[in-house]
């Protein structure tokens, strides 16, 4: 298993390099000019110098290698130094945002907590909701609970989050006035009242994303439970006089969770992607919002870094899903 994990991780490296090349080339070949937003009064030769200072003068393969060096070696070292507190040489160049002139990593570290809170919490809530729904739907197949559950989950993944989000704002902020429609990220939790405010402003974005996730995961859970419920080992377990509860919740559930765990792991990066829209609806200034703002401002370093981080998440969680599947299911042998 360890062998497989190492082999699989090594295989991920060319994938990541290839993706980084695609992202780099796409942004590089695109006809967008970072100096386009500067005032028109700047003379052409000064403009050319600005372009050079942004590192745009060199040939493309050199820029790609420099970018890789920057991204894979310098920036991780910077982060490491920051965490461990050593300050060996401060002259290592950082990847700078063209809009704010601050290091991209700092911008991302600033935005990450908001995204993690909203997205992470919604994914956990969604999964916790989905598992019991899936189990009951499968156990009582074609009952009214199953019918309603199937319908709701169908609605859940058909209705886009930007509509459910807006709909919730209309109902709960405009009409009922229960929750604030805008997520205030400067809000500090100091006492009970401010904690309640934090909870209130998180309710809607988390609910919207959680419903969307729960819809998909509960379908998988149901299908996986149904696959297992008719197996011979379940009949054996019943025949030897185990209680129904033990049969379903220990024997069947444990086996049905194997594919579901991998689906949950594979879904994590997509949730980050989907959060771009939810963040836009509720004005959460997380990573997704940073991406949108940078795209609109033509801020290539931020866009490249963020897109690559999303790609990294996908590759990482694919790896995790593969390894988990092997660990959880002894029938799967990769070697």
């Amino acid at each position: 298993m360890l062998n497989f994990t190492i082999r699989r991780s090594v295989l991920a490296i060319p994938t990541l390099l290839f993706i980084s090349l695609i992202i780099f080339l796409l942004l590089d070949l695109a006809p967008s000019d970072p100096t386009a937003n500067l005032p028109l009064t700047i003379p052409p030769d000064v403009r050319e110098k600005i372009r050079e200072s942004l590192g745009l003068g060199q040939p493309i393969h050199i820029r790609y290698l420099l970018w890789c060096n920057q991204f894979f070696i310098n920036e991780p070292l910077n982060v490491l130094e920051h965490w461990l507190g050593w300050n060996s040489d401060g002259d290592r160049i950082r990847v700078l945002s063209w809009q704010t002139r601050s290091p991209v990593v700092d911008l991302i570290v600033e935005r990450l907590p908001q995204t993690l809170w909203v997205v992470g919490l919604s994914y956990i809530v969604g999964t916790l909701l989905a598992l019991p729904i899936g189990i009951i739907s499968a156990y009582r197949q074609y009952s009214w609970f199953d019918q309603i559950g199937t319908f709701i989950s169908m609605v859940g993944f058909s209705v886009p989050t930007f509509f459910t989000g807006v709909l919730m704002i209309v109902i709960f902020s405009v009409w009922l006035g229960w929750f604030p429609s805008i997520y205030d990220t400067t809000h500090q939790v100091t006492d009970m009242a401010s904690f309640m405010h934090q909870v209130k402003q998180m309710v809607m974005p988390v609910t919207v994303l959680a419903l969307f996730n729960a819809a998909q995961i509960s379908r998988f859970m149901r299908a996986s439970m149904l696959d297992n419920l008719n197996q011979d080992y379940v009949r054996t377990a019943r025949a030897k006089g185990l209680r129904e509860q033990t049969v379903v919740l220990v024997h069947v559930l444990r086996n049905s969770l194997i594919p579901v765990v991998t689906v949950v792991a594979l879904g994590v990066p997509q949730v980050f992607g989907g959060a771009i829209i939810t963040e836009q609806v509720f004005k959460v200034n997380g990573l997704g919002q940073l991406l949108i703002v940078s795209i609109q401002g033509g801020d290539l370093p931020v866009v490249q870094t963020l897109t690559f981080i999303f790609a990294l998440l996908i590759v990482l969680f694919n790896l995790i899903a593969d390894v988990l599947y092997g660990v959880l299911d002894p029938r799967i042998r990769y070697d």
């Binding site: 994938t15 942004l27 006809p31 967008s32 991406l291 795209i295 866009v303 897109t307 790609a311 998440l313």
Partner: peptide
């Protein structure tokens, strides 16, 4: 195909549309 599956689609879509 696997490489395409590993691409972050929504961010890339946004980037492509903005650029072209």
């Amino acid at each position: 195909t696997d490489l395409f599956l590993a691409l972050p689609l929504l961010p890339l879509l946004l980037v492509i549309i903005m650029l072209f």
